[in-house]
Write a protein that binds this DNA or RNA. Sequence first.
DNA 1: TGACTATATAACCATCAGGGAATATAGTCA
DNA 2: TGACTATATTCCCTGATGGTTATATAGTCA
Lengths: 112, 112
Amino acid sequence: MARKKENKPLSPAALGLVAARFKLLGEPARLALLNSLMSREQNVNELVESTSLSQANVSKHLSQLADAGYVNRRKDGLFTVYSISDDSVFQLCDLMCSSIAKKLGQDLQAIA
Amino acid sequence: MARKKENKPLSPAALGLVAARFKLLGEPARLALLNSLMSREQNVNELVESTSLSQANVSKHLSQLADAGYVNRRKDGLFTVYSISDDSVFQLCDLMCSSIAKKLGQDLQAIA
DNA sequence: TGACTATATAACCATCAGGGAATATAGTCA
DNA sequence: TGACTATATTCCCTGATGGTTATATAGTCA
């Protein structure tokens, strides 16, 4: 897991792939959905309630998250149950949160 | 580093903060800049060359990255030298890349 | 001071993505 | 089959954002 010092320019295609996946996480509504799914799998209506987003909106965002492989879609009778399918979501969010905490700490230092 | 099973709803403000930082990483141009800075610190013109982006464009993206605390700005005479200031960028990108690799592997399985 | 270079900023345009309303689709049950 | 429910999709509007061009700012050096 050591970091290479080498210059690896990463093809534009690769950059686009990575960017697209980060972009999906760069939306409060989708983060709210993921965050809500972290505690347990839920169907669309449950997610609508827990996030206070509209049904159409939730459905649209879930489709994007599913396409990207972040969440899993499972039909249960009339319901569609979603769950987090990519564990890295947890790690990415944890990492980002601690990064934010660090930055806020620095900002605080700069003021005090 | 164990994951809590608790439901932590995260305030909208917190979601916004996290989303904003992910969003910055969700742009190929900014990723290209960060990627180029991973090998060594560089001034604006060097980054313009290594990324083939316009000077104004590079400058604008760098400002955003600096505001977020991802990169550090240092004046060196007439130049402005930028460097990565938040190590989590490395980890975030590594994590994302392996997540992508995993997904691509799954997609491959689904076809074969 | 004046010319030159590096970088930042402003103004503008075009594109894209999110949100809402309405509608379509599909599964369930009587 | 027909009514009902859950979910997906379409259409439309609007705000945000990236890119470009032109310009401003600031540092350097003769």
